[in-house]
Structure formats: structure tokens, C-alpha cells
């Protein structure tokens, strides 16, 4: 009872407001050239604002005179992989293969931008191993592995701790 009543109100308002099919063009054709110009213009202005805000020319990657910030260069290896400029290229080179599978999966459900498990049939094991994330972080993960504590290290430490009182007791 409640549900039918509630659906009624919103339905009635919606039908009252709407006219015709939802799929419709409201204000006539879009001026594509003008739109493109405005888009480029807007991006350029955003970039200029950002340059002024941070005192940095993002196109030439050089600090600007008289900004509020003091800029200091650091080696690319010291920043997380995410921030390295070479990443963009790497992703794009590797993407087509993996992306085709993801794209079709997304198209089927009609939704995008959601991580999903690809169909087992559509993706072979080899292509899974070549997902961009893994390839990029190979160097990084090797380094990490060396630093990471192994579970066996922990056992050794524990053994020592257990052993110590026994020694002192002797």
C-alpha cells in the first residue's frame, strides 16, 4: 500500500513535468567548432591559473620568477611510480590488448569505469600476465621484495626471544 502510494506521487510529478520521450535534443544542434574552441580556451585558462597559483610553467617544466614557492628538482626514482612521466607512455603502449577485453565487458553491461573480472573465455592467461600494472611495477616490486620482511625472518626472531630466557636461567 505504502509503496504504491509513494510511487504514485513521484510518477505523477514526473509525468507532469515531462513532455515526450526522454531521449531528445533540447536546444537544437551544437556548434562543434565553437565548442572545440571554448574547450581549448578553457583548458588553456585553467593551465594559466595553475601556473600563476604555483609559480611554475607546466609546459616547459620550469619555475617562474617571483612565485610563492621555491621549486627543487628531484630524481625520478625517488617519487612513486605513479608520478613518473614515462608512465603515461607505458600504459598507452600496453593498453590496447587488455583494454579490448575490458571494453567489451563494459559494453555488455552498459556501465563503464568499474573494475570487473573479465570473462574467463575472452582473456587468455598470457594476456592477464601482461596487464599494464604488473609490467610497470616489476622493477619496483623486486626492490620491495628485498626489503620486505619474510615470514621466516619472524620465526627466527621469535626463536631467539624464546631461547634467551632459557639461557639466562641456565
Amino acid at each position: 500500500m505504502c509503496r504504491t502510494m509513494s510511487i504514485n506521487l513521484s510518477k505523477r510529478i514526473l509525468t507532469a513535468l515531462s513532455n515526450g520521450p526522454t531521449r531528445r535534443n533540447l536546444f537544437g544542434p551544437v556548434d562543434r567548432e565553437q565548442l572545440q574552441l571554448e574547450y581549448q580556451d578553457s583548458l588553456r585558462k585553467d593551465l594559466e591559473d595553475a601556473s600563476r597559483r604555483w609559480g611554475f610553467d607546466f609546459l616547459t617544466e620550469t619555475p617562474l620568477e617571483g612565485g610563492d614557492f621555491q621549486w627543487e628538482g628531484i630524481s625520478g626514482t625517488k617519487v612513486p611510480a605513479l608520478y613518473r612521466s614515462c608512465m603515461v607512455g607505458a600504459v598507452e603502449v600496453l593498453r590496447p590488448r587488455g583494454a579490448s577485453g575490458l571494453g567489451s565487458a563494459a559494453a555488455q553491461s552498459g556501465k563503464e569505469n568499474i573494475p570487473r573480472t573479465p570473462n574467463r573465455d575472452s582473456l587468455k592467461p598470457q594476456s592477464l600476465e601482461k596487464t599494464p600494472e604488473k609490467t610497470q611495477s616489476n622493477n619496483q616490486s623486486n626492490k620491495l621484495k628485498r626489503k620486505q620482511t619474510n615470514i621466516t625472518d619472524f620465526y627466527q626472531a621469535k626463536r631467539r626471544v624464546v631461547a634467551t630466557p632459557r639461557k639466562s636461567g641456565q
Binding site: N25, G28, V30, D31, Q34, L35, E38
Partner: peptide, 8 residues
């Protein structure tokens, strides 16, 4: 904004 861009 121009009206032809309002739906966009």
C-alpha cells in the same frame, strides 16, 4: 554559457 551547450 550558450543555450545550445546547456544540454551538454
Amino acid at each position: 554559457t550558450r543555450k545550445c551547450n546547456l544540454q551538454l
